[in-house]
Design a protein around this nucleic acid. Structure first.
Lengths: 135, 135
DNA sequence: AAATATCTTGACGTTTACGTCAATGTAAAG
DNA sequence: CTTTACATTGACGTAAACGTCAAGATATTT
């Protein structure tokens, strides 16, 4: 296992988030670093959770939603019925992500089409300008 | 062309957003429906822009970012240098979207892996339970 | 025409996700 | 041992994205 620990500053620098944000995430129950006296000591697991948090943010999820996603990653190891319930959540989450991917793909297509169109316009304009400079 | 117009309520019902939100988007310069006297009349174009707005929101973009994206879609038809500048923005936006898709793909992979793992656990548990009920 | 439904523009309230001090504590460096 | 650096916990401030009245104009149904 990875026993390295990180101070709040190290982590905030590495991921370009403020210490305030890290404490805020802790407040909301997204991370729970250990303490050496007063000061926080982030483990490799905390670091991994932070990565998931930031990915969730980049995808536009709220901290509450991210919390639920993190809960899925946190093995609860309960009865079979509990695990089946969790599986349902997993699959819902996967569906949500897939719909989001469709949105992204559509957006990329749109953008690329617009890009191509614009490139054509530029070509035309520059062709005209060439004509003009000849005359 | 599509000459149909929509009242604020029609649009809000169709896309499941409040009238307040539509007025808010207008306030922020994202849509600008015409007026018949006082009341707003949304055109097919406004409707299309609304769809883009909502897609942007699903992808986690802020209204300011969405505004910039909408600007890209709005043909300015200026000089070649202007259009080239726009092209740069297009390509940046496409890069942003592609990075987001990588995030999504990673998230989906993670989720599917966790899903498979969980399914195995459930299998094991149920196998144990079968053993128990035999004895 | 009266009632009902829908539209309008303010204006203030609310939630989320932190930013920004302030006051204090601890710990390493000179 | 004092300065310097980074840690802590409040507490208040803030930007974004609307929600939620209020008060009035308009339009349509009965």
């Amino acid at each position: 296992m990875d026993n390295r620990t990180y101070s709040i500053r190290q982590l905030s620098k590495e991921f370009d988030v403020t210490a305030r944000a890290l404490r805020f995430y802790e407040d909301k129950g997204l991370i729970s670093p250990e303490r050496k006296g007063q000061t926080r000591l982030y483990s490799a697991r905390d670091r991994a959770r932070l990565q998931l948090i930031l990915r969730g943010k980049r995808l536009g999820f709220s901290l509450v939603e991210i919390h639920e996603i993190l809960d899925l990653y946190t093995p609860k190891d309960h009865g079979a019925s509990q695990m089946k319930a969790t599986l349902v959540k997993y699959r819902k989450q996967i569906e949500t992500l897939k719909r989001q991917r469709e949105d992204i793909d559509a957006a990329i297509s749109d953008m690329q089409a617009g890009c191509v169109w614009l490139e054509e316009q530029v070509q035309k304009l520059e062709a005209e300008n060439l004509q003009q400079s000849k005359a």
